[in-house]
Amino acid sequence: MSLVSDLGHSRGQAATGTTFAVAGGREVHIRVRNLTMAYGDFVLMRDLDFTVQRGEIFVIMGGSGCGKSTLLRHLIGLNEPAAGEIWYGDENFTKAAPATRELMLRRFGVLYQSGGLWSSMTLAENIGLPLGEFTDLTPAQIREVATLKLSLVGLKGFEDYYPSQISGGMQKRAGLARAMALDPEVLFFDEPSAGLDPVSSCLLDELILELRASLGSTIVIVTHELASIFAIADNCIYLDTETRTMGALGNPHELLKSCTNPGVRRFLTRGREGAEGVREGETAHG
């Protein structure tokens, strides 16, 4: 309950535009045009077409193995589209020259599904590396930033631990702290709440809302967590394995109310509705 009211609160904030990034109002940040994703000859998804507004929290959902992580990898340029284009603002990311692309990449922060922490560095060093490379901060300041970021994800005091010395959920949160290191414009999180207890997971939702509200970041999240989808998502896309394209696009509350795609209904109602849901819908219409 409190989460929903929280959501309302930060939405209100975004609308009044107390902070800089949202002040510009609705502005397209990420535009995906007719994207086809394939591994070799195996086409995973075709004709994905959507936009993400600046300062929006955008959720990618779908069954396991449908290509959510792959979509994320396309968005950050780790995989090349088989067809279609990805734009950031008015820059074509897909066609960008390597140097331009590198500059664009610096504005991204990414949390990988398996953490992706550098195992031979402590948590503080993990967070400090991008700061040392791309800012003029002194080592002492970098350390302070690392401490602050770690405390934002509830890991205060673990600066000098190695990734192998902390638990799986803690690694996930440390990865989150590293993704936020440079306060990037766009954050990509691949299943940030996997392996977290409900309380940490709830704090994480709050953190995500807060990042958007205060820093104005655009946040793209892959998640299965229904509670957090409903609590934080402004918009979401559902990747449908059966039709190999997007099954639905829109605000999750509205999708729950009015979407008729059986896959989406099954997903949003945890399988309670689905096959019968469609039949009910049909009788209602007929």
């Binding site: 405390s151 673990f158 807060e210 509200a213 820093l215």
Partner: peptide, 23 residues
Amino acid sequence: LPDGVRRLEALAEAVPERAGARA
């Protein structure tokens, strides 16, 4: 200060430092 500052700081304090974690 903007509200966001206060809320971010509150989040940073939300989980107290685990005793004895710092070696």
